[in-house]
Design a protein around this nucleic acid. Structure first.
Length: 152
DNA sequence: GCCAACGTTGGC
DNA sequence: GCCAACGTTGGC
């Protein structure tokens, strides 16, 4: 059982957008970073839980939780020349990029802001808070998970 | 909009 | 394989 953090810009795809999907489930497409892809492909398992994080917005922070309901499979948007995240190097035989399906579990009543996360000493080692970290999918330790859940 | 930090690309 | 140039991320 692993824990993760999924970043998304709410203007592109917010937790409300996920809530509005059928069965509150959608595929997490558009990941075009090898480190993030490898985490999805090699380590992410059905039943894993994750935080939904809003970035590049007025109050960046954790806004809820999700569950991995389908493990990594090819991200077909890489093959679509009209898609935003089209990758000309992707082919049917070698799709290069993968995605998982996520189902919304919970939307927090209030955002657990980045500011609040930074102010919590128990999270000092969290990847998200390390300088210069831009990874859009990050592993979260069980301890960090518990600490943040207690802040909700 | 600024800019620091990081990833990717491509010439050599 | 090096590394400069460029693009992207994301907080502020």
């Amino acid at each position: 059982m692993n824990y993760w953090l999924f970043k998304s810009e709410p203007e592109a795809f917010s937790i409300s957008d996920l809530a509005a999907c059928p069965r509150k489930t959608d595929h997490w497409d558009g990941i075009r970073n090898y480190q993030a892809r490898n985490l999805m492909r090699d380590q992410m398992k059905k039943g894993d839980l994750g935080f939904f994080y809003h970035s590049s917005c007025a109050v960046p922070g954790v806004v809820g939780t999700v569950e991995v309901v389908r493990e990594a499979y090819p991200d077909h948007t890489a093959l679509d020349s009209n898609a935003k995240y089209y990758d000309p190097k992707a082919t049917v035989d070698d799709p290069r990029w993968v995605m998982v399906d996520l189902r919304l579990r919970r939307t927090f009543k209030r955002v657990i802001s980045l500011q609040a996360l930074k102010a919590n000493d128990a999270l000092a080692e969290m990847k998200l808070l390390k300088r210069g970290n831009r990874l859009s999918i990050q592993p979260v330790t069980e301890h960090e998970w518990q600490v943040i859940m207690a802040m909700a």
